Amino acid sequence: MDIRIRLSWPAGQLTATLGETPSATALAAALPLVATARTWGEEVYFDTGLTLALEDGAQQVVEPGTVAFWTEGSALALPYGPTPISRGTESRLASPCNVLGRLDGDPRALDTVRDGDPLRVERA
Rank of each mutant, 00 (worst) to 15 (best):
V44E: 01
G65D: 10
Y45R: 10
V67T: 01
W40Q: 01
E42S: 11
Q59K: 14
P32D: 10
D56I: 03
V62K: 07
A37C: 06
T51G: 12
E63L: 12
V34R: 14
L52V: 02
V67Q: 03
V34Y: 09
V61P: 01
W40K: 00
A35G: 04
T39G: 07
Q60P: 02
E63W: 05
E55W: 03
V34W: 08
R38E: 15
G57F: 11
A68Q: 08
E55R: 04
F69R: 03
Q60S: 06
T51I: 11
A35W: 11
D47G: 12
V61F: 07
G65H: 02
G57N: 11
D47S: 13
E43A: 07
R38M: 14
T51Y: 06
A68C: 07
T36C: 05
T51A: 15
T48F: 13
V61Y: 07
L50H: 06
E63P: 03
D47P: 00
P64E: 04
V34D: 15
V62T: 14
L52K: 12
V67I: 04
Y45K: 00
A35T: 11
T66M: 13
G49K: 09
V62C: 14
A37I: 09
G41T: 03
R38F: 08
F46W: 05
G65P: 09
D47M: 01
R38G: 10
F46R: 01
T48K: 08
Q59Y: 06
F69C: 10
D56R: 13
G65M: 11
P64T: 04
A53E: 14
P32N: 13
A58V: 05
G49T: 12
A37L: 08
L52D: 11
A58S: 14
E42P: 03
L52N: 13
